[in-house]
Amino acid sequence: MRANYVVLLAVAAWCFLAGAVYIVWSLLDVGTVEWAGTTALLLTGVLAVFVAFFLWRSHRAQGGELPEDRLDANIDDGDPELGFFSPWSWWPIGLAASAALVFLGLAAGYWIAFVGVALFLVMIVGWVYEYYRGYFAR
């Protein structure tokens, strides 16, 4: 994890340096600051700092090194509780169909959009509560 944020900080430092050189160079060459490139370079540096800061905070909060950062770790040490992932589900297909009907309705005739909204209500409830009912109720 330390290597991750050090790399990103190096990227940020390079972008800030390149941005400064870019400003000075364009001032010497044409006498004005070229805003598009200057903004892009400096904001790229800011974005790299964003991700580096997030990884640095995550690293401090996780209370130890990740298995993938340890030379003595096994593959299965990296199988902690990563979260719940649905193995498969039909609901997103119906949900996508309802959204498609709404947009078709906006383009072709409003009455189709009403059918789409009705279908959306069924599908979103079905999807959100898929693991809250039947065998999965808890």
Binding site: Q62, G64, L66, D72, A73, D77, G83
Partner: peptide
């Protein structure tokens, strides 16, 4: 030996 690691919530 491996400490419990708190990963960021995905």
């Amino acid at each position: 030996s491996a400490p419990v690691v708190n990963r960021a919530n995905p």
